[in-house]
Nucleic acid binder design. Structure first.
Lengths: 156, 156
DNA sequence: CACTCGTTACTAGTTCGCCTAGGTTTGGGC
DNA sequence: GCCCAAACCTAGGCGAACTAGTAACGAGTG
């Protein structure tokens, strides 16, 4: 038995505290954004998904949004009604499948999202850039282990 | 101009990807837990808050829960009705203020939460323990910078 | 003591968002 | 040409949070 297994480092708790503080800060920031845009969680996630896909020239259908957000297609329909009414997106004809529909974000919505989440992403990229090669390797390993730990927790 | 400012490290994007993966994993784990307990986001957060305070011998009132969860006191009342009905907590007399109420978690609810979130916490502590002193310093700095970045994003 | 004002929690009624169930149009294999 | 599956929409219901208004109590003041 080596020391790392048996004794929890005195710094471990500090690291978790810092992790928790970060999560709280990010969550608060997302809530501010949602309040500012007067939207729910899924509405904003849908817009982000849409803008990212649009940036890669991919067509987005309501069904794809349902899969990505984990909601039923009927709920997506209502969400699209909502976001269309608020001027954030439009429904268009699907290029190949006439049963389906092509959803696209309006330019205004694009600007609005970029102004907040884009800024956030830039800042985070800046933070990550300050890591040297060893540092980024350590952080990546840490995050990977955390994700693995979360995945491994049984639902009981 | 130094390289770290001008050129974003090729690893920076990888770190952010890993961060996103971790967030997704943790979120999924929390959702599994909530589904397993048949509770909403706030219900579980309230229980955690309650258990933590109880462990420190502090009395929790509905008003404190409202502040901590960011909801209105009326909504807390209904939530307490819900959680009382499901056997997760009880309302008792407040020791000093007879307008108020002392909320306390049942032992069954204690066990239930510990079985899942406690397990998660142990695993995370294990991951953090594998960092040496330099490593934990690097990670903490990284997380602190991220939190600062999130805090600094204006709502526009 | 009597009054007043703020605090604390609750009740009633509304809103918002997601779900289930069922219907309509189109795609694609036989 | 037929039939089943796929994709979206409509209708109705439910859960959870909000607003507004009520009742009981605490604390300070004349």
């Amino acid at each position: 038995m080596n020391a790392a297994e048996k004794v929890t480092s005195p710094h471990a708790a500090d690291v978790l505290r810092e992790l928790h503080a970060y999560r709280a800060a990010e969550e608060a920031m997302r809530r501010r954004t949602r309040n500012s845009m007067k939207m729910g969680e899924n509405d904003l996630a849908a817009l982000r998904f849409l803008l990212r896909a649009q940036g890669q020239g991919r067509v987005v259908t309501p069904g794809m949004l349902a899969d990505h957000l984990g909601m039923k297609s009927a709920s997506v329909t209502v969400m699209l009604d909502r976001l269309t009414k608020s001027g954030h997106l439009t429904r268009g004809a699907h290029p190949t499948d006439r049963r389906s529909i092509a959803v696209s974000a309006t330019s205004g919505s694009d600007d609005e999202v970029r102004a907040t989440l884009g800024e956030m992403h830039r800042r985070m990229l800046g933070v990550a850039s300050h890591l040297d090669q060893d540092g980024s390797e350590i952080v990546r390993r840490f995050l990977l282990d955390l994700a693995t730990a979360a995945d491994g927790v049984a639902t009981a």
